[in-house]
């Protein structure tokens, strides 16, 4: 038996992907990016603890980055529109949940994060939120997840050290 098959925090990799897609949809994005993967991970309370950031704070920081960028174009703080509704994500998505016609494809960076996260696992559809987070933490700005972590003031090397301490060599 491999470690990940008994790991309590194992997620279905598709669930993270579909949840991230809903985060993207909510913002009006056409692609699911690394930033949306990060937001999806924050659904897991242990990730909120690891980063010292709540999902709500991360979403707010994400929106603030957009406001700031729009502000640089001269579009004032009043320039906004309501976010789109997110759909419910099943814990164990089936193929039909993943292969929806209107799914938002992943950016190349997001795809690489998920692929690298599952790489050490024997069961490629099982992944822990920590494994995905570890990949996201290796990203550098201008990657959107790295920019978001920066905006949140997350001390990335410190989180990496703590993650490595609790994860037996992955």
């Amino acid at each position: 038996m491999t470690t990940e098959s008994v790991a309590p925090g194992a997620h279905h990799a598709w669930a993270i992907y579909v949840q991230a897609g809903e985060e993207a949809r909510r913002r009006g994005d056409r692609r699911t990016g690394t930033d949306h993967l990060l937001l999806a991970l924050l659904e897991d309370p242990s990730i909120e603890v690891a980063l010292g950031v709540t999902l709500r704070q991360a979403r707010q920081a994400h929106a603030s980055l957009d406001h700031e960028a729009l502000g640089a174009l001269g579009l004032g703080a009043g320039t906004d529109a309501p976010e789109l509704p997110m759909r419910a994500v099943p814990k164990k998505p089936r193929l039909r949940d993943v292969a929806q016609k209107d799914r938002l494809r992943m950016t190349p960076a997001a795809k690489k994060v998920l692929e690298d996260a599952v790489k050490p696992n024997r069961r490629k559809l099982q992944v822990t939120a920590q494994q995905v987070l570890a990949q996201i933490l290796t990203l550098q700005p201008p990657d959107p997840a790295a920019v978001l972590l920066g905006a949140l003031g997350v001390n990335t090397p410190e989180v990496q050290r703590r993650l490595a301490a609790v994860t037996p060599d992955s």
Binding site: R27, G28, D29, R30, L65, D66, H67, A69, L70, A72, L73, T79, D80, A81, P82, E83, L84, P142, V147
Partner: peptide, 12 residues
């Protein structure tokens, strides 16, 4: 980022 933010805003 502003360009992407405009896309997102337009979508919303």
């Amino acid at each position: 980022r502003a360009s992407l933010a405009l896309h997102r805003l337009a979508e919303r």
